[in-house]
Amino acid sequence: MTGRSEVLLEVDGLVQRYPGTRNAAVDDVSFQIRIGETLGLVGESGCGKSTTARCIAGLTRPTGGTVRLGTRDVLSASRSALKSLRRDMQMVFQDPYSSLNPRMTVADLVGEGLLVHGLRPERRARRDRVVELLDMVGLPASSLERRPRSFSGGQRQRIAIARALAVEPRLLICDEPVSSLDVSVQAQVLNLFKKLRTQLGLSMLFIAHDLAVVRYLCDQVAVMQSGRIVEIGSRDQVYGAPRHHYTRELLAAVPVPDPPVERERMRTFRISEEST
């Protein structure tokens, strides 16, 4: 998946500065995602991950920089160009409780992309496609007429994923899609992402603060701190031989579920910290 394949998303020098704040929320962020590749964006909360995602999706206008999807510039796109760009990149949000309109049925929620992009103009065809999508994410066709409130968090996130995949996007932007879920449900949803990525040849920008999640799913990893990308590289490189001390700190903060090992680990980490 790595190597010389074509670049799908190119972010260059992205800056987002909010009035009245001294530091930029996103400060000179640049990275690329190749076709079929998954980039994990990790960092503590408030470091600018979500803002970066929203800028890329054209939901907020950044102060500076460029975002290209294929050959098309996202930030200078006209209304109609933006609409067709949005067909090619869809989003999944963190909180499946607030990101699904409580007053719409699953059929309407998942079918909305099809409807607004005119992909399946006839009702019946749209319905068939929605059933197909629900099946893809592991939900029964009997969910169609139900509303989000009758689903659990994991199921809601599956609905959100089906909704995003409806228009066959090339890039899926996931903003902490599993961090509000229980650990066991997290695993199910992560496996779903992994399956869908292979099945559909998706490229993904995967935002998370959980390093284990990113390690499981991503080919490339970018570490963000205070609006900047401090380290970027392949998964093995970042996890195996972290170069930036913040990355090492993050890795060290992941607890090991075995008390003696954990104690030993913390000790060696402190020593290595003192020596640097």
Binding site: Y97, P102, R103, G138, L139, P140, S142, R146, R147, P148, R149, S150, F151, S152, G153, G154, Q155, R156, R158, V185, Q188
Partner: peptide, 28 residues
Amino acid sequence: WLNPRLRPRRRTSAVPLVTSPAPAGGVS
């Protein structure tokens, strides 16, 4: 009619769900 959330809940957990063994009761 406007707000389906006010309606009494249908017993949905009786519907077998393929993937999740958890009961379908959501928090809303």
